[in-house]
C-alpha cells in the first residue's frame, strides 16, 4: 500500500477542510480526488505530500508516518503543485539540476536525469530558456519533469491541466499515461471529469471535506447514474412545464434552464416515447452517462466559491 489514510482530518483556523476521510492507494494505481473548489482535495494532497501536519486520524505514506519521517517520504515522492513553483531565477535546465541536487543527487547524475526528463516532456530545445519565457503548458510540463527528477515511487499532481489549452492537456495526459505504464503510482486532483475518466483507475469524489463516492469511473456511473441520458430542448420557458409530462419516462428528470435531462437506461426508447406523445422538442440527443453526471448529481449544480 503506497498511501493509507484513516479518519484523516485537517482544519485551518477553525474551518475544517478535511472531515475524516479514508483513502487507500496501492502501487501502480492511478488514483483521483475529484471535487468542486473547496472540497478539501488540495489539503488532502498537502498532507499526503508530507508538507502539512495531520490534525487527526492516521496517515501512512510508503509505510511511513509523515509526522516522524517527512524527509524520507518526500525523498520518494514527486510533487507537481497546482501553481507552478518553478525557480524563475534559473533556466529550464538549471531548474531540473538544482532540484535534483535538493534530493542529494550528484551533479553528474542530476544533469543526466535532467536531460532525460527534458526529452520526456519535449522541452530539450528550451533547455537554456528562462522559465518566465515559457508558455503555461511548457511550464506545467517542466513542473512534471522536475517532479520526476528523483524517480519517485508516487507522483502527486494537483490539478495538473487547469489553465492549459486542449493541445497542452492532451500532451500532458500522454506523458502521464506513459508514466503509469512504467509503474509509477499517480495521485491527482482534478475537477475535469474527462481527465478523471482518461487517467484514473479509481477515484473518490469529495465534497465539503468528506468523500461522497468512491470507485472506478464505470462503477461510479453504474452506482450513481443511469446508463444513458436523453437531453431534450423545448425552447426557453417551456422546459419546466414539459418536465411533468415526461416525468414517468425516466428514472429521474432534471430541469435545467435550457434543457431537460432524462436519466434512463435506454435513451432511445425514452426519446421515442417523447415523440409518441407528440411533445416535439426543438432538439433531442441521446448520450451515454458520464462521470460529469455523477459528479453534478453528488455535488450539486450550485456554485461554490
Amino acid at each position: 500500500m503506497m498511501i493509507s489514510a484513516r479518519g484523516l482530518r485537517k482544519s485551518y483556523g477553525g474551518i475544517e477542510a478535511v472531515k475524516g476521510i479514508d483513502v487507500e492507494v496501492s502501487a501502480g494505481e492511478a488514483f483521483g480526488f475529484l471535487g468542486p473548489n473547496g472540497a478539501g482535495k488540495s489539503s488532502t494532497m498537502r498532507m499526503i505530500a508530507a508538507v502539512s501536519p495531520v490534525d487527526a486520524g492516521s496517515l501512512e505514506i510508503l509505510g511511513m508516518d509523515p509526522a516522524t519521517h517527512g524527509s524520507e517520504i518526500r525523498a520518494r515522492l514527486g510533487v507537481c503543485p497546482q501553481e507552478d513553483s518553478l525557480d524563475n531565477e534559473l533556466s529550464v535546465m538549471e531548474n531540473l539540476v538544482v532540484y535534483g541536487r535538493y534530493f542529494g543527487l550528484s551533479r553528474a547524475e542530476a544533469s543526466s536525469r535532467a536531460k532525460e526528463q527534458l526529452a520526456f516532456v519535449q522541452l530539450t530545445e528550451r533547455a537554456k530558456s528562462r522559465v518566465e519565457d515559457l508558455s503555461g503548458g511548457m511550464k506545467r510540463r517542466l513542473s512534471v519533469a522536475r517532479s520526476l527528477i528523483n524517480q519517485p515511487d508516487v507522483l502527486l499532481l494537483d490539478e495538473p491541466t487547469t489553465g492549459l489549452d486542449p493541445q497542452a492537456r492532451h500532451q500532458l495526459w500522454d506523458r502521464l499515461f506513459r508514466l503509469k505504464q512504467q509503474g509509477v503510482t499517480l495521485v491527482l486532483t482534478t475537477h475535469y471529469m474527462d481527465e478523471a475518466e482518461q487517467l484514473c483507475d479509481r477515484l473518490v469524489i469529495m465534497d465539503n471535506g468528506v468523500i461522497v463516492a468512491a470507485g472506478s469511473p464505470l462503477e461510479l456511473i453504474a452506482a450513481h447514474s443511469t446508463r444513458e441520458v436523453t437531453e431534450l430542448r423545448f425552447g426557453v420557458g417551456d422546459n419546466e412545464s414539459m418536465a411533468e409530462k415526461v416525468a414517468d419516462l425516466a428514472d429521474r428528470v432534471e430541469v435545467l434552464p435550457d434543457r431537460l435531462l432524462l436519466y434512463t437506461d435506454d435513451g432511445e426508447q425514452a426519446s421515442q416515447a417523447v415523440h409518441d406523445r407528440e411533445l416535439h422538442p426543438v432538439s433531442s440527443l441521446v448520450r451515454r452517462a458520464t462521470l460529469e453526471d455523477v459528479f453534478l448529481r453528488l455535488t450539486g449544480r450550485t456554485l461554490v466559491d
Partner: peptide
C-alpha cells in the same frame, strides 16, 4: 474544531536519513 487524536507532535523539521 476537532480534537487532535494522533500526530499532534508533528515535527515540521524532521531529520532526513534517520538518525
Amino acid at each position: 474544531m476537532t480534537r487532535p487524536v494522533t500526530s499532534t507532535g508533528h515535527d515540521p523539521d524532521p531529520v532526513p536519513g534517520g538518525a
